[in-house]
Design a protein around this nucleic acid. Structure first.
Length: 461
RNA sequence: GGCUGAAUGGCAGAGUGGCUAUGCACCGGAUUGCAAAUCCGUUUACCUCGGUUCGACUCCGGGUUCAGCCUCCA
């Protein structure tokens, strides 16, 4: 049975969805004003793994991951660039979709944009005002009154008094309480605006997610996810708004992925220590990056470094090496024992490191069988392939993956094959000098030869 | 200062009250014309101080260090 760590209780809990067999899941996606970095990639991969695992466990999953396409940063960036907000967001949404494809992500069921859900935001805010939990201020903004929600702080384990004591923000006279947050922002002259009962304006960040989640998944959802840095205040505020408006528990399981760090410090735009996905893709494949992001538990911090990516590459190489010559065939039998251990690891709050260790054991056993030629070898290799699919890896053709690295050398496959043939002839004549000379040449170009059973295969190192 | 969480072998990274994680690297052996790949084997751990226990890396308490959040953030 699946157990998930719930931030609400800070414990692993057995997972039971609201409606048997169905799961509704909302993940806070990206505020789109720049290219995705590795931190974003981790979020995307972590919840893609959850999505896949739920589906593999026979749940009918509705996965919503939003795009925040209206926000101060977006407005500012568009102004800096001298382009329209729409041009900016379209451009980066396209780029994000490309990055997602590189990371081998499944598409979420819905990918709503904040600007398409303004109506629901408006009605939610109205409800909150009617209930006395929100108030319009003199400056045209509408604020949420945190003190009106007794459970405020239940997700992040904070108390209002502690928060006030640690308050570092300058007091805003429009707010009744410095911790009140904005639901609706009055627009300045040249800013985008939507009409509302409180004058032209735009929604606050927090209400956007509540609205998109409720719009597509209803007032009660099973799983709500996001980065650990969103726990407070974003998710706390989502709970406050949603539960105050509907009177129901908004999300039953809250999940947070750990942050990617660089030199033991959070990777983020404000710290200027981030690497974009496409920068990484210049040197590593999307699958390698994906593997790296799954190599630790999703809740732990993950330190980004080139040597970690190298490690991911070496690990994938080992797994692919065991899969050479094995084509996908879902009808073949699998090793039940391995599948069960894999499933148990994933059921234990998505323990991907242990799940991956099952794949390595399979690879070792395939190799021990002498490859996928034998019946048992084929069964094991097939199991490896199928379990890889559950994690969204190992689905490429093994030879093609091993032979075509991102970092292309000057040699094309035909040239390599020709040199190999020349070497085969030399070896037949026991001309070891010429044979080694050819191999050294290829090695210098990043091509590694393997002689096995009288045949020579190659890969890029 | 408050609230979370973490400290494991050369590196990365799981886990368990007593028994091999796993990957990379290293060392020895097999295989190979020599390599590579592969297989077999060995070596290297559990921040610190106390406590509980027949027995703790694993539970409890103190300490130290680190990270995240408390401001936009995946």
């Amino acid at each position: 049975m699946l157990h998930l760590h719930n931030t609400l209780s800070r414990k692993k809990e057995p997972f039971t969805p609201l409606v048997a067999g169905k799961v509704s899941m909302y993940v806070c996606g990206i505020t789109i004003y720049d290219l995705c970095h590795v931190g974003h990639a981790r979020l995307l991969v972590a919840f893609d793994v959850l999505f896949r695992h739920l589906q593999a466990s026979d749940y009918d999953v509705t996965y919503v991951r939003n795009i925040t396409d209206i926000d101060d940063k977006i407005i500012n960036r568009a102004a800096e660039n001298g382009e329209s907000i729409n041009d900016l967001t379209e451009r980066y949404i396209d780029a994000m979709h490309e990055d997602e494809a590189s990371l081998l992500l499944l598409s979420p069921t819905h990918e709503p944009r904040a600007t398409d859900t303004i109506g629901r935001m408006h009605s939610l805010i109205k409800t909150l005002i009617d209930k006395g939990m929100a108030y319009p201020a003199d400056n045209g903004d509408v604020y949420y009154a945190v003190s009106s929600f007794p459970d405020y702080g239940k997700l992040s384990g904070r108390k209002l008094d502690d928060l006030r004591a640690g308050e570092r923000v300058a007091v805003d006279n429009n707010k009744r309480d410095p911790l009140d947050f904005v639901l609706w922002k009055a627009s300045k002259a040249d800013e985008p605006a939507w009409d509302s009962d409180w004058g032209p304006g735009r929604p606050g960040w927090h209400i956007e997610c509540s609205a998109m989640a409720i719009e597509l998944l209803g007032e009660e959802i099973d799983i709500h996810g996001g980065g650990a840095d969103l726990q407070f205040p974003h998710h706390e505020n989502e709970i406050a708004q949603s539960e105050a408006a509907t009177g129901k528990q908004f999300a039953r399981y809250w999940m947070h992925n750990g942050l990617v760090q660089v030199d033991d410090e959070k990777m983020s735009k404000s710290l200027h220590n981030f690497f974009t996905v496409r920068e990484v893709l210049k040197s590593y494949s999307g699958e390698e990056l994906r593997y790296f992001l799954m190599s630790g538990h999703y809740r732990s911090p993950l330190n980004y470094s080139a040597s970690q990516l190298d490690n991911a590459r070496a690990s994938l190489r080992r797994l692919y090496t065991a899969l050479r010559g094995v084509g996908a065939d879902a009808s073949r039998s699998v090793s039940r024992e391995h599948v069960e251990r894999f499933q148990a690891a994933m059921d234990d709050d998505l323990n991907t490191p242990v799940a991956l260790s099952v794949l390595f054991e399979l690879a070792t056993e395939v190799n021990r069988e002498g490859g996928a030629e034998s019946k048992r070898g084929l069964k094991l290799a097939n199991t490896l392939l199928q379990l890889g699919a559950r994690l969204g890896i190992l689905q490429g053709d093994a030879d093609a993956v091993l032979q075509g690295s991102v970092d292309e050398s000057g040699l094309d496959a035909a040239k390599i094959e020709a040199l190999i043939q020349e070497r085969v002839d030399a070896r037949a004549n026991k001309d070891w000098a010429r044979s080694d000379e050819i191999r050294d040449e290829l090695t210098a170009d990043g091509v590694i030869l393997e002689d096995k059973d009288g045949k020579t295969s190659w890969r890029r190192g």
